[in-house]
Design a protein around this nucleic acid. Structure first.
Lengths: 138, 138
DNA sequence: CTGTATCCATGGAGATACTG
DNA sequence: CAGTATCTCCATGGATACAG
């Protein structure tokens, strides 16, 4: 890798660090981003979202949605007129600004589609020695 | 926001969902990304990293580094020759491929630099126009 | 310096049942 | 349908002490 010919990028680095951690404060956790992804293709209702985010419980979904709404990332609309109340969640413009993040994450996850090594699992990933070299990307 | 004139983006959406969640499996948690950010400006030693990632404990740093190494995102080199053993962590090319993610996250966090609302805090926000307009950069 | 081991508190998160 | 209320389990993660 490149040598640190210009070692002190401290300010730049610290700033990046702070920004990333700020972003993580809002987007961190297992569910926030997946939920937002679910909303990128259009407004969704509660149950619909729960199906799309596969695996999330109503409790979690409810809590996460509240937090995302609180931060202005999405809006919540209630249609009480219908027989069964319908609630719709829509990505706010604020949330739209996350597109680049989603894209970057999605692209990386795609290219990466390799076996993930979890700490518990023994290093038993036999064939398909694909991890390290990953050259690439076009 | 755009209407779903072409409603079934299901495949596309599910694929994005999976990719993002895969990425999150490796990068999720409080520390992984910050650690990687710390390494983007060059190799670092343990203590150095711990200072940069401000707030992380040795235990966590150690554990996270192990996982990141296991996934080929960084490499670990030991210089045993010196009196006090020195260990250096370097971002692997695999890790380099995360640049776009970091950038997107950093940019968003920067633009966003508004106060974050946490669930515990009472909603001091007016029900109508809150943060959303996101008055751009500056 | 570079970690590891141990103890322990918090809260993330699942299951289930219930309300409007 | 759209959530809320409990109960509980366990992973996350901090503090501290110790080891190579």
């Amino acid at each position: 890798m490149q040598l640190p010919a210009k070692p002190p990028t401290h300010t730049e680095c610290n700033s990046a660090m702070r920004s990333v951690r700020d972003a993580l404060d809002l987007l961190g956790g297992k569910w926030k981003l997946p939920i937002i992804v679910g909303l990128t293709s259009g407004p969704r209702r509660f149950k619909q979202l729960q199906r799309e985010v596969a695996g999330i419980t109503a409790k979690m979904l409810s809590k996460e949605l509240k937090e995302l709404e609180m931060n202005g990332l999405l809006t919540r609309q209630v249609q009480a007129d219908a027989a069964p109340v319908a609630v719709t969640y829509t990505l706010a413009s604020y949330g739209d600004s996350l597109f680049p993040v989603i894209e970057a994450l999605r692209d990386w996850g795609q290219q990466h589609r390799t076996r993930i090594m979890h700490p518990g699992a023994a290093a038993a990933a036999p064939e398909t020695a694909e991890a390290p070299q990953l050259a690439v990307v076009a």
